[in-house]
């Protein structure tokens, strides 16, 4: 990780000095363990603040929407796929961007690590393979692969798909990953069990919209939950309204979601919100052979069609 960081800083500093970009978007060290804060650097001096480690799970493409200046952005695999999506949806121009690609070995799951310890964690550090967790009266070394975010475990696009310069060598992508085991499990349930399953996972939702807002895909000027004429979804924490929100949020990401996991990471209640979006990801792959954010030349699946698309569900 440290060699990543020095390279990131070197590139960023050069870009700013040569005035190739006006701003670098990256992360700075967080104030609590396992958190980094997205930040910008406009001067070579500010570049010193940048960090890169296994706590950079927030998707930086979210910070590009409708920006006008020339931007240098640090992008891991999923960020780069969302940058592609942003470009094809005209939320940013390719020419505006200098993409500093970072091949990613996965981000760690702070909820999971927190739940492994009774006492509060005060410090988390890492080396290539391990995560070292320290708290009052304990210190434990965890294998990083065991505590990755769920989406990182099954990620098959760890390398950035577009970039202008790499901060580290490309990795060998994971192969033979079963990405949709959990989705298949739910698909196999009886309708009543499915209903109850989702009732259960959504019961803690406080409608804070962190999942929506952490998502780079959610940039509508007025979100459907804020529409009032007509009002499609109520604003209370009524379970039907909560479910409608989650349903439509996911559906709105259909064919666009890169499973970056920012939504799940952002949820203050630890709700597995990816359960919805993954189903759409699976269907897009099975029905239309589509994975989001891999190419600048193809239209997303709901913006195109083939005359022979599957239609066995239509009478």
């Amino acid at each position: 990780m440290s060699e990543y960081l020095s390279k990131i800083k070197e590139i960023s500093e050069r870009l700013l000095k040569e005035e190739k970009v006006e701003i670098i978007i990256g992360f700075r060290k967080g104030t609590v363990p396992m958190m980094n804060e997205p930040c910008f650097a406009k001067t070579p001096e500010q570049v010193k603040e940048l960090v890169w480690d296994s706590n950079c799970g927030i998707n930086l493409a979210n910070y590009l929407t409708d920006r006008k200046e020339k931007i240098g952005i640090i992008a891991k695999g999923c960020d780069s796929r969302n940058i592609v999506t942003h470009i094809i949806e005209n939320k940013i121009k390719r020419e505006q961007l200098f993409i500093i690609g970072v091949s990613c070995k996965g981000m760690i799951d702070k909820n999971k690590i927190t739940s492994m310890f009774e006492n509060e964690i005060n410090e988390v550090s890492e080396d290539e393979e391990n995560i070292i967790v320290k708290g009052e009266g304990f210190e434990k070394t965890l294998n990083k692969n065991d505590v990755l975010q769920e989406n990182c475990k099954i990620c098959v696009h760890r390398n950035p798909v577009i970039y202008d310069e790499l901060a580290a060598d490309l990795l060998v992508e994971q192969k033979d990953v079963d990405r949709y085991e959990d989705v298949r499990k739910i698909e196999a349930m009886a309708p009543e069990d499915k209903w109850n399953y989702f009732d259960d996972i959504l019961s803690d939702c406080i409608r804070c919209y962190a999942c929506r807002n952490a998502c780079p895909l959610c940039y509508c000027p007025t979100c459907f939950v804020d529409e009032s004429r007509p009002q499609w979804v109520g604003k209370s924490i009524d379970p039907v309204d909560t479910r409608t929100f989650h349903f439509l949020r996911a559906y709105h990401c259909a064919g666009r979601c890169t499973d970056c996991g920012a939504c799940e990471r952002a949820c203050p209640m630890g709700i597995k919100v990816r359960t919805f979006t993954k189903k759409l990801g699976k269907d897009c792959l099975e029905l239309y052979g589509w994975e989001a954010g891999l190419s600048l030349d193809e239209r997303p699946p709901l913006d195109t069609y083939r005359p022979d698309d599957p239609e066995d569900f239509i009478k």
């Binding site: 804060e37 997205p38 930040c39 910008f40 927030i58 979210n62 910070y63 406080i206 409608r207 804070c208 919209y209 962190a210 929506r212 807002n213 952490a214 952002a266 203050p268």
Partner: peptide
């Protein structure tokens, strides 16, 4: 404000 995603958490 840069990092803020404007959620209500």
């Amino acid at each position: 404000a840069f990092a803020c995603i404007n959620c209500g958490t």
